[in-house]
């Protein structure tokens, strides 16, 4: 219940404070603040338009107009991101059908970040990254269209791991996958999180997925964080804000009484 569920050790992990973002004249984030300690996992939950993905985009330097403080490992992020930033922070996107180059082999897709950053032993790194995501070497010289959705998402995760980042940003990483494949990818991500000690920020609309993956959950609505709670509290239904309560009730299936009680939060 307390905002202190995740107390960042100063100088490590992700620290966002008072983040405002504008798209032209329209303000889409209003004073968003949270922190994720090193090795911790925070989930951002909300419906479309709540601004959850914009938070990730702001961290990656993909929005132009913003104010507030963004810190990774204690270092302030400015208007642009250095090459070194991407050694520390990597992102996995929602749709593995859109995020992989259709005419590049898996080998080329995975090698590229290492080459851009001038790393040595590129081939070893590719094989290691594939192993980490549970794909054997035979996948190296295939193209994305020869892979299933789950295998493509594994490749996207392998690409994020190529630079041995310490922070992983996940934007709905399993919402385009079948539930049986989702379980495999979530298990993989959780294992990597644990084994590599990755600091994770995950965006999702699915409360169950987020509470499975994260230590704490921030519930967003209309560009604001309404509350940040421990995953156990979310699981036990201990949420304060009426919007969070509604979201929680909506996640339990079709129930006329519940639906008739919905309030419009627009």
């Amino acid at each position: 219940m307390s905002a202190a569920v995740l107390q960042a050790v100063p100088g490590t992990g992700i620290d966002v404070s008072g983040l405002n973002v504008w798209f032209d004249d329209h303000q889409v984030l209003h004073g968003v603040s949270f922190s994720v300690p090193e090795g911790g996992a925070l989930g951002l939950v909300g419906e479309s338009g709540s601004g959850k993905s914009t938070v990730l985009r702001a961290l990656c330097g993909l929005v132009d107009q913003w104010s507030g403080a963004l810190r990774i490992d204690g270092a302030d992020l400015g208007k642009t991101r250095s090459r070194g930033f991407y050694r520390v922070v990597q992102m996995v996107f929602q749709d593995p059908f859109a995020s992989l180059h259709p005419r590049h082999t898996i080998d080329r897709t995975l090698s590229e970040p290492a080459q851009v950053h001038g790393l040595d032993r590129v081939e070893d790194r590719v094989v290691t990254a594939l192993e980490q995501v549970g794909l054997d070497r035979s996948f190296r010289f295939r193209f994305p269209h020869q892979l299933s959705g789950g295998q493509r998402q594994r490749v996207a995760i392998a690409r994020a791991l190529m630079l041995e980042p310490r922070v992983l940003l996940l934007d709905e990483p399993t919402s385009a996958l079948d539930v049986s494949i989702q379980a495999e990818v979530l298990n993989l991500l959780k294992g990597l999180q644990r084994d590599l000690g990755l600091t994770t920020l995950m965006v999702s609309h699915d409360l169950a997925v987020v509470s499975h993956m994260c230590d704490a959950v921030a519930i967003m609505n209309r560009g604001r964080i309404l509350e940040t709670i421990a995953a156990e509290d979310l699981a036990a239904g201990r949420v304060d804000h009426p919007y969070s309560q509604q979201l929680l009730r909506a996640s339990s299936g079709f129930d006329r009484a519940v639906i008739d009680s919905f309030v419009d939060w627009e």
């Binding site: 539930v179 049986s180 989702q182 379980a183 495999e184 979530l186 298990n187 959780k190 699915d206 409360l207 169950a208 997925v209 509470s211 499975h212 995953a231 156990e232 979310l234 699981a235 929680l248 996640s251």
Partner: peptide
């Protein structure tokens, strides 16, 4: 079984 559930947290999800 392979769905993550709010009311039943588990470390690893069963896979199909």
């Amino acid at each position: 079984g392979c769905l993550p559930r709010l009311d039943h947290r588990q470390e690893t999800l069963p896979v199909l």
